[in-house]
Lab assay of single mutants.
Amino acid sequence: MVIEDPKTNKLIEVEKLPDGTYKVTIYDKKTGEKKTITMSKKDLEKLLKAL
């Protein structure tokens, strides 16, 4: 799943891993910076609600 946040000009890509956690990659379209973090479903839901 890919989500675009027009306010921050970032793309957020979410991928479910076999162990039940989620790999979240955040791309900054302005700088080209890429950050990848792994989080639980509960933390991911908090992140998505904040957008």
Rank of each mutant, 00 (worst) to 15 (best):
M1K: 04
M1R: 03
M1H: 13
M1Y: 00
V2P: 15
V2E: 15
V2W: 00
V2F: 00
V2D: 10
I3F: 03
I3R: 00
I3S: 06
E4A: 02
E4C: 08
E4R: 00
E4V: 03
D5Q: 01
D5G: 00
D5A: 01
D5I: 04
D5Y: 06
D5R: 00
P6N: 07
P6R: 01
P6Y: 03
K7N: 08
K7I: 14
K7E: 12
K7H: 12
K7F: 13
K7L: 14
T8C: 07
T8S: 11
T8N: 13
T8D: 08
N9T: 03
N9I: 05
N9L: 08
K10N: 13
K10T: 13
K10W: 13
L11P: 01
L11T: 11
L11N: 04
L11D: 02
L11M: 12
I12L: 06
I12P: 01
I12N: 01
I12K: 01
E13G: 06
E13N: 06
E13I: 15
E13L: 15
E13Y: 15
V14P: 00
V14A: 10
V14F: 07
V14T: 03
V14L: 06
E15Q: 07
E15R: 11
E15S: 09
E15H: 09
K16P: 15
K16V: 13
K16W: 11
K16A: 13
K16I: 13
L17F: 11
L17Q: 09
P18Q: 11
D19K: 06
D19C: 08
D19Y: 08
G20M: 13
G20D: 08
T21V: 07
T21M: 08
T21E: 03
T21H: 07
T21A: 09
T21Y: 05
Y22V: 02
Y22D: 00
Y22E: 00
Y22A: 03
K23I: 03
K23P: 00
V24M: 05
V24D: 00
T25N: 04
T25A: 09
T25P: 00
T25Q: 09
T25Y: 12
I26T: 09
I26H: 05
Y27F: 08
Y27C: 01
Y27D: 03
Y27V: 02
D28H: 03
D28A: 02
D28M: 02
D28T: 05
D28V: 03
D28F: 02
K29Q: 02
K29S: 05
K29E: 03
K30C: 05
K30D: 06
K30Y: 09
K30P: 09
K30E: 12
K30N: 09
G32Q: 08
G32C: 08
G32D: 04
G32P: 05
G32W: 15
E33H: 10
E33R: 06
E33F: 12
E33M: 07
E33G: 10
E33I: 07
K34Y: 13
K34S: 09
K34R: 09
K34L: 07
K34D: 08
K34Q: 10
K34H: 09
K34E: 05
K35N: 14
K35A: 09
T36K: 03
T36F: 14
T36P: 06
T36R: 12
T36A: 11
T36Q: 10
T36M: 10
T36N: 06
I37R: 10
I37V: 10
I37H: 12
T38Q: 06
T38S: 10
M39I: 04
M39F: 06
M39A: 04
M39D: 00
M39E: 00
M39H: 01
S40G: 10
S40L: 09
S40I: 06
S40E: 05
K41N: 12
K41L: 15
K41H: 15
K41W: 15
K41G: 09
K42E: 14
K42Q: 14
D43F: 05
L44H: 01
L44K: 01
E45N: 08
E45T: 07
E45A: 11
K46A: 14
K46W: 14
K46V: 14
K46E: 15
L47S: 00
L47P: 00
L47D: 00
L48Q: 01
L48R: 01
L48T: 01
L48M: 05
K49P: 07
K49W: 15
A50I: 08
A50Y: 13
L51Y: 02
L51F: 04
L51C: 04
L51D: 04
